[in-house]
């Protein structure tokens, strides 16, 4: 009985990982790829680790696996956020069918600051045009 549970869990985990790697190959731009990896890989890794934890069924293995799963769940979303921010800073083009982009114009590329409103007119630009 325990074997069948392990089989089902590990099969689901491998299926999620395989689907997210197909997605990373087929999606058209960086942000969609980050989206895909963050979703499917968390539960895929979690289920694979959980199945091996069920196989050993010891306390020492269980604590290690719990720590790994919690760490993966916490860090994947943070890593995705950092990468998306860096990709937006380097002006990586978004897909041409993107519906609307409300982030455009909010970044200050000089000071790396993110404003909550778009400024009316940048004062440095005015000076340059006068000169």
């Amino acid at each position: 009985m325990k074997e069948y549970i392990i089989m089902i869990l590990s099969f689901l985990g491998a299926l999620f990982i395989l689907s997210s790697s197909i997605g990373i190959l087929r999606k058209p731009d960086v942000y969609l790829r980050i989206n895909i990896t963050g979703k499917a890989s968390t539960l895929g890794i979690g289920l694979l680790l959980l199945s091996s934890g069920l196989f050993f069924n010891e306390v020492s293995v269980g604590t290690r696996i719990t720590a790994t799963i919690i760490f993966v769940f916490l860090t994947i979303s943070i890593g995705g956020h950092m990468l998306a921010r860096a990709a937006y800073f380097t002006k990586t083009p978004t897909w041409e069918k993107t519906k609307l982009d409300e982030l455009a114009g909010h970044y200050d590329y000089e000071t790396h600051e993110l404003r909550s409103e778009i400024p009316r007119k940048a004062p440095e630009l005015n000076n340059e045009t006068k000169n």
Binding site: I17, I45, S51
Partner: peptide, 26 residues
Amino acid sequence: PSLADRVIALDMLILISIGIIAVYSV
């Protein structure tokens, strides 16, 4: 095409290798 694509692929490779290690430990 961009550097961010390569970094996200590298991240994904390390995550898959975690899964492979879990499988081989069983």
